[in-house]
């Protein structure tokens, strides 16, 4: 009496299904458009995808889109560069120097969770209502996650690699440059990913005050004027920016962390 063995494995493994992803996205937009076109919901409450696309197209054609994007990108890039460079240096000090860690870590831990938006009025007093306060808001928002990511990245470098370098008499600066920094790079890049999205979030807050142009200023103005189509068009722009940033970081990870 022989019988085939019953198979009881399988399942519990998800595989990428790109067609399903695309279809789901299209279906959401289609249903949304259908609901809006049918007039069941007032356009005040739910602007239609077509309306949002029209708003985006108008912005692009009038040249406003580029002015807003250029203004925001400039602030984001500058704030991100300043904040992440300072965060990197500070995180490195936290990771490497006992005194810096003892003095700095409690301070960083205490200041990190503060919503930087709450400090905006103070920034206006310090830096005025021009570009410096906007760049500073973004830079400060980027600084903390970057410092913490760098610090924990440094902590995650295997001690045995440092011992190895010391056993070959590698000088300290070379240990930092050739062992600790590359070893902390995965942590640093995940810090870049987080702080880049924080920079995008903060650009809206930063452009609340005294900004004529910028995606954030555009969104705020659209909100003030109750132009919901423009508002969502601006949100679309931000989300496209976010996707682009995520793509760039993934690209950097694939290139710089190929060794993993």
């Amino acid at each position: 009496m022989s019988e085939p063995l019953r198979f009881r494995g399988g399942g519990f493994v998800t595989r990428p299904k790109p067609i399903s992803s695309c279809l789901a996205g299209l279906a959401v937009v289609a249903i949304w458009q259908a609901v809006a076109s049918a007039g069941w919901v007032s356009p005040v409450f739910l602007p239609s995808p077509a309306g949002i696309a029209r708003a985006l197209a108008e912005m692009a054609l009038s040249g406003q889109l580029w002015r807003h994007l250029a203004a925001s990108l400039q602030r984001i890039l500058l704030g991100f560069a300043l904040g992440s460079a300072a965060g990197l240096a500070f995180g490195l000090a936290l990771g490497l120097l006992s005194h810096a860690r003892a003095a700095g870590l409690p301070i960083v831990s205490a200041l990190f969770p503060i919503p930087k938006i709450a400090l905006l009025p103070l920034f206006i007093l310090w830096f005025g209502i021009g570009e410096p306060s906007k760049v500073a808001t973004i830079a400060l928002g980027v600084f903390f996650p970057m410092a913490i990511a760098t610090y924990s990245g440094v902590d995650q470098v295997p001690r045995t690699l440092i011992r190895m370098a010391q056993s070959f008499d590698v000088p300290t600066h070379a240990v930092v440059a050739k062992v600790i920094l590359p070893g902390a790079l995965p942590g640093i890049l995940s810090g870049v990913r987080i702080s880049a999205s924080i920079a995008l979030i903060l650009v809206v807050a930063a452009e609340m005050i005294g900004a004529e142009f910028g995606v954030g200023a555009f969104i705020l103005t659209a909100g003030n004027l109750m132009r919901t189509e423009d508002l969502l068009a601006g949100v679309c722009l931000l989300s496209i920016l976010g996707l682009a940033v995520g793509f760039l970081v993934s690209l950097a990870e694939r290139r710089l962390l190929a060794w993993r």
Binding site: P158, T160, L161, R163, M164, A165, S167, F168, D169, V170, P171, A174, K178, V179, P182, G183, L185, W259, R260
Partner: peptide
């Protein structure tokens, strides 16, 4: 480097090639 170690967990720099890891001991 008169006194030289060989490690239990190999202590290789994962981002460097084989030749790069050997070079690491000589570069400075």
């Amino acid at each position: 480097n008169p006194i030289t170690y060989i490690f239990q967990d190999f202590a290789l720099l994962p981002w460097r090639s084989v030749a790069g890891n050997v070079a690491f001991a000589l570069e400075h």
